[in-house]
Design a protein around this nucleic acid. Sequence first.
DNA 1: CCGATGACAAGCA
DNA 2: ATGCTTGCCATCG
Length: 115
Amino acid sequence: MIKNKLDIDKDHLTSLIFDIVSAIPYGRATSYGAIAKAIGFPNMSRMVGRIMSQCDSYITNIPAHRVVNSQGRLSASSVFPDMQQKLIAENIIVVNNKIQNWKQVFWNPMDEITF
DNA sequence: CCGATGACAAGCA
DNA sequence: ATGCTTGCCATCG
């Protein structure tokens, strides 16, 4: 029975997020809110972050380091220390936990996902 | 049940 | 640009 929105199809949402994050090109990044919109839940940005942390705990294949907040800040770096390093390794400029050329680095999942 | 918290976001001063 | 406030929703104590 359904207790909340995530219980409607948690695994489905998780795999959707998985697919989107996996589709982020090398050297690019996107935001939690953008992913939330892409999966059809514009106000679920917090949930995306929460799900990401869970995914990342047992799946290391996904480029979780390419997901930052809407301002290009690495809000996950505290619990994901390698994040900045991995971004820099992709020629993404990161200063003070923040992507500098965010407008250019930003990759909109809506450009790839079509319903 | 209620308040606090969090890998968030948008609006406003 | 910086800092505060509100809205959001699942978890936790």
